[in-house]
Design a binder for these strands. Structure first.
Lengths: 160, 160
DNA sequence: GTCCGGACTGTTATATTATAACATATCGAC
DNA sequence: GTCGATATGTTATAATATAACAGTCCGGAC
């Protein structure tokens, strides 16, 4: 719900995400297998969206026998169970900060540092729902991606 | 600002779009060359977002000597001058319904018929701007894409 | 008019992202 | 243990997008 600070205990982020994922999979009766778990961990290795082929390289470096479908299947599982989001603008994937709680997923993407922050999307979703309802359109899924500069980078590099 | 009806005078849509494009290019001192004009016309040949390679095939059928860069350059020009929008979810392009008037571009995408409607995005943009400002994020560009079912398809195929 | 520089287009090659299709392995219920 | 469903391995290929460089056109300076 806010931008990750430059220095924070990121290990704690990862642990929290994996714990939440375990719990969510248990709740849904889904199997968080070794490779799915590892892909999720890699997605969470930063707060920047990661491309599928970057994940693939990481897996390969670790000695997994990995081809594109390996990664895409794991990502597909994680998407279906609400553990990651796909950033359409970047063709990349980022960990979900609150799995289990239904939400559309709205992202602020910093053009400078590449970080992604998941926004509280309720007011945005409401505005969209109203506009759509006015046209008789029934909404099923939303993509809200906002590019700009995050507070950290703005302070560092004022008016370039 | 609303969904295109199943039958409407689409020729008029195309003519209006091309006239607006001519005017907008004149205003901006930009050159709407033959191929750019033709690509815009092809983008406007329906209200459904069109992929770059579909455009490429159309051009090829018409006897243009066309390779991918041909199309991507034309699309890039049209994007830069606000004559088309890119739909990130679909990797496809759609004509802008009100060039020259600054707007973020928000789209309703019908999963059934594939039509895209450009939404009045002011309230949505406002909601996003407020949320972003609250986090100290300065917005430069937004992508708002909403999947669902348009009124026409909903009526045809109630509760599938 | 013609020369110059910038913008536009042609062409080939290649990068990047994603999926199809089929074989094999693993898990869990019974 | 066996069966069916789910998950993974593997090869190939589709779909989208860009790099790089050569050639061409166009409009203004002179």
């Amino acid at each position: 719900m806010s931008f990750p600070l430059a220095q924070h205990d990121h290990g704690a982020c990862i642990r929290a995400a994996l714990d939440a994922a375990e719990a969510e999979c248990r709740r849904q009766g889904a199997r968080l297998t070794l490779i799915r778990r590892r892909v999720l961990e890699l997605v969470w290795s930063s707060h920047q969206p990661v491309g599928a082929y970057a994940l693939l390289e990481s897996l390969a470096r670790e000695g997994w026998s990995a081809a594109p479908p390996t990664v895409y299947r794991a990502l597909d599982f994680l998407l279906r169970h609400g553990l990651v989001h796909r950033i359409a603008l970047l063709n990349a994937f980022v960990g979900c900060t609150h799995p289990g709680q239904p939400h559309a997923g709205a992202f602020l993407l910093c053009k400078v540092c590449g970080a992604a922050a998941e926004l509280d999307d309720a007011p945005v979703v409401k505005a969209i729902a109203e506009a759509a309802a006015g046209l008789g359109f029934s909404v099923s899924r939303q993509t809200i991606e906002v590019e700009g500069v995050c507070p950290g980078c703005r302070d560092k590099d004022p008016a370039p």
